[in-house]
């Protein structure tokens, strides 16, 4: 299968990329690692007129320490996240989620920004970004703006990005005192999440002071498990307390039924995986 013909632009700055997108009009598309886009093009589910390859834009790649946050360029690859010492120190949840993406080959090309912009509800990085309260820097013809992770994911494969905008970087606040875990359930190696749970926990003395929990593939966007977070805040750091809080994981969620799992099974998985994720994040045994 061969994609329909398109023109190809390879800008070297963000401004050039934004201009190329604008010139390409409505049917221009950004190409990052291509690990979601090329399969779509090959099936001819999309036929953009222009691809703007942002792989050569230096500003978009790499991880930088910005005081109270890490700033991670959009074209930083999954494989880079796995090896990066700053990510390991300040945002290990992202590396843990990236390690779950596809296989080595996919991780060598696929990018953080591509995963977030593609916004597949089964994607591993969006939930992690929501749990970490990341914010996204976006560049467009009118300049730059910042959108919170909570506002970025709008619907199935739909984000706050306008067609003429580019995701530049992801800002992940450092959270001293917090520990995290990503728990993914899938059928076979290399497969997408049936359900995934990203958890971040701050313990104080013998209890859980605060928690943030985000669910993958329990709706059309990553979801915060608000009832779980409330129940965990101030609770004892015990297996029983966590299990009881995790029982609320599917509250308010409207998960899909598909060939892999029914909605009911997903609700069940959400509670089990939330318990595991929070216990692992908090080091509670």
């Amino acid at each position: 299968m061969i994609p329909a013909a398109f023109d190809y632009a390879k800008p070297s700055t963000v401004d050039e990329a934004v201009r190329a997108l604008a010139e390409g009009g409505e049917d221009a598309k950004v190409l990052a690692g291509g690990q979601s886009l090329i399969p779509v093009l090959r099936l001819r589910l999309a036929a953009p007129t222009v691809l703007v390859d942002v792989g050569g834009v230096g500003e978009l790649r790499g991880v930088r320490d910005d005081g109270d946050a890490l700033v991670i360029g959009a074209t930083t690859r999954h494989a880079d996240l796995l090896r990066d010492p700053l990510v390991a120190r300040h945002a290990p949840l992202l590396a843990q989620a990236a390690a779950q993406v596809g296989d080595r080959q996919v991780r060598h090309l696929g990018t953080l920004g591509g995963s977030l912009s593609h916004a597949d509800p089964a994607g591993d990085l969006p939930g992690a970004a929501v749990a970490l309260d990341a914010s996204f820097e976006i560049a467009g013809p009118g300049g730059r703006r910042t959108v919170s992770a909570a506002d970025f994911f709008v619907d199935f494969l739909t984000t706050a990005l306008a067609p003429d905008e580019i995701l530049v970087s992801v800002r992940v606040p450092k959270r001293p005192g917090w520990t995290t875990h990503y728990e993914k359930f899938n059928r076979v190696a290399q497969a997408w999440a049936i359900v995934g749970v990203a958890a971040a926990v701050r313990r104080e003395n013998g209890s859980i002071a605060e928690a943030r929990v985000a669910l993958t593939n329990m709706g059309s966007t990553p979801l915060r498990a608000g009832a779980v977070e409330q129940s965990l805040a101030g609770s004892a750091a015990t297996v029983d307390a966590v299990a009881s809080a995790a029982g609320h994981a599917a509250e308010g969620a409207d998960p899909p039924s598909d060939a892999f799992a029914s909605a009911d099974y997903r609700r069940h998985l959400a509670t089990v995986l939330t318990r595991r994720a929070v216990l692992a994040a908090g080091g509670i045994a």
């Binding site: 690990q35 080959q105 090309l109 290399q190």
Partner: peptide, 23 residues
């Protein structure tokens, strides 16, 4: 031809990629 099987794997810049999923 759907990016799953890996039979098309080559090294690009020294790292494995699925050459059916690279332009």
């Amino acid at each position: 031809d759907t990016s799953n099987c890996g039979s098309c794997t080559v090294l690009m810049g020294g790292e494995s990629v699925k050459s059916c999923t690279v332009l």
